[in-house]
């Protein structure tokens, strides 16, 4: 509106309606969106868990064993299971969205979205097996 828009008798009615803070609870689709977005908190928690692990390792063999037995206490185990579950949701939703984020072409032929997602899942599998092997056997 410019300053020359002139006089109106009544204030124009607002078209915007206040959206509830809990809008994402109203539909499963919305809830799934928030579930996907909230994985960020658990990714951060996972990093903290890994860094606590390294910190215990730095303090020596006894501290490492103490930390490992702390991890198997039921409340800590339950919490880390929740963190693990959400990091899995993060991985799955991330790989499912990958084809939308990257459009790959081989020559002139666009690579089908399912194949891009499958490539990510395959990489996930290979990396997981390789890392498990390295950690469990000591490389």
């Amino acid at each position: 509106m410019t300053s020359h828009s002139g006089y109106t008798l009544h204030h124009p009615q607002w078209l915007r309606r206040r959206v509830s803070t809990w809008w994402w609870l109203s539909r499963w689709r919305y809830f799934k969106f928030i579930l996907r977005e909230i994985t960020s908190v658990f990714v951060a928690a996972a990093v903290v868990l890994l860094l606590l692990y390294v910190a215990a390792l730095r303090r020596g063999p006894d501290a490492l064993i103490a930390f490992q037995s702390w991890l198997s206490r039921p409340p800590i185990l339950a919490a880390s299971a929740v963190v693990f579950f959400f990091t899995l949701i993060h991985s799955i939703t991330w790989f499912n969205l990958a084809p939308k984020a990257m459009k790959v072409r081989l020559g002139n032929i666009p690579v089908p979205p399912a194949l891009i997602a499958a490539g990510h899942y395959f990489a996930w599998l290979v990396i997981s097996l390789a890392l498990a092997w390295i950690i469990l056997t000591g490389g």
């Binding site: 692990y53 880390s80 990396i127």
Partner: peptide, 20 residues
Amino acid sequence: GMLSALFIPVLLFILVLAPA
């Protein structure tokens, strides 16, 4: 997002969850 999707679950599983 990509690095954590690829690497964090297996690290958590092998180091934290499975031993516990």
